[in-house]
């Protein structure tokens, strides 16, 4: 019974993305080559404002990357400072902690990425099931709200939950006590923190991600569902077989974009929550917090830029690999 439904879904899946339907495009291209070229130039004009913008505000300042190879001197500025070769790069790698920090960065980012994507998709699917207009609206606003809460306020709330005022215990410990479980000194125990931080990220971004996926769901053509429904599939089957596959392109984009930033620690959130609490560093110290901590006094733009450049280059390599894999296995979803 579901065979027809899936087939119908697949049909429309493959017919929606333009590149997946090369058959009608090709004859047209050969039919009117001149018009096509002209109009592709015409349509390219649309990108001109953004392109000029990118050049002025992003590519021109990239000249500043040279400071990574310089011995930075305040009065001589970026371009006047003397060259120092790869000296600035040595600082991070000669640190005995480099290995652990790299591992932390990747581990936390993978956790964050996987958890927020999963939460976003699940939440979007569930929200899509809800039919009461009023409840749906309220729910959507409610789950989006955490995105606005600043990391400082998050850190205050966490302290109330996990430490209490003056370290008196906190709500969670009170609950543990009530259940007859041993109390935990959360702020000196590094073990649980990757999970606590992941929970915070899901809380922060689950709603945000779900909005992206919901928008994708709303553009799924109704016929797809009609076919499935006639077929007698349950709501869960529709969600699993019809909606979920349609979210793949969006998820793929978010995934590839996330992979590129896997070497960037989430400084804003982690620093606001962990701060300079050394006891939690074994599991929470990432590249960005480490660099901030060791260089805040020196104000050395050169070394900071060197670490940043390293992160960018590694990110670039990873993204290239991700895109190549994507092109190979699902060409129509490739973004680059």
């Amino acid at each position: 019974m579901t065979e027809i439904g899936t087939a119908a879904a697949e049909r429309s899946v493959s017919s929606t993305p333009p590149a997946a339907a090369p058959a009608p495009a090709k004859p047209e291209r050969t039919r009117r080559p001149a018009g096509r070229v002209q109009s592709s130039l015409g349509v390219s004009l649309l990108a001109v404002p953004a392109l000029l913008y990118l050049i002025v505000f992003h590519y021109l300042p990239m000249a500043g990357l040279v400071v990574a190879f310089k011995e930075f001197d305040i009065s001589q500025g970026i371009f006047g400072s003397p060259w120092s070769g790869l000296d600035n790069f040595r600082y991070f790698f000669s640190s005995g902690d480099a290995g652990r920090i790299l591992l932390n960065t990747i581990f936390l980012n993978v956790l964050f990425l996987a958890a927020t994507l999963a939460a976003g998709v699940t939440l979007a699917l569930m929200l899509n099931e809800i039919r009461g207009r009023f409840f749906k609206r309220i729910a959507q606003s409610a789950v989006f709200f955490p995105y606005f809460v600043s990391p400082i306020v998050i850190s205050i709330i966490l302290q109330v939950l996990l430490a209490g005022v003056g370290g008196s215990g906190g709500l969670v410990n009170d609950a543990l006590l009530g259940l007859g479980l041993p109390q935990v000194s959360w702020y000196t125990e590094p073990g649980p923190w990757p999970w606590i931080l992941t929970f915070v990220k899901v809380w922060q971004l689950g709603g945000y991600m779900s909005v992206i996926f919901l928008a994708a769901i709303t553009s799924i053509p109704e016929e797809v569902y009609e076919a499935g429904a006639i077929d007698g599939a349950s709501r869960a089957q529709l969600a699993w077989r019809v909606t979920l596959p349609m979210l793949r392109p969006t998820a793929a984009i978010l995934l590839v974009l996330g992979v590129g930033r896997i070497f960037y620690g989430d400084f804003g959130t982690i620093y606001a929550i962990v701060g300079d609490n050394g006891t939690l560093f074994p599991s929470t110290d990432v590249i960005d917090t480490y660099v901030f901590r060791s260089l805040r006094q020196l104000g050395d733009f050169g070394t900071t830029a060197a670490v940043g450049l390293f992160q960018s280059v590694v990110g670039f390599v990873l993204v290239t690999i991700a895109v190549l894999i994507q092109r190979r296995y699902s060409k129509e979803n490739s973004i680059l």
């Binding site: 040595r90 600082y91 005995g96 000196t188 609490n277 050394g278 006891t279 901590r293 060791s294 020196l298």
Partner: peptide, 28 residues
């Protein structure tokens, strides 16, 4: 003048925050 030992000092600053602060606050 920190210049001759800049890199070492930066690494020490990081290690110091990590291991000395908890000692100073009696947390370990």
């Amino acid at each position: 003048d920190v210049t001759p030992v800049k890199r070492e000092d930066a690494q020490m600053a990081a290690a110091f925050t990590q291991y000395a602060n908890p000692l100073f606050f009696g947390a370990v």
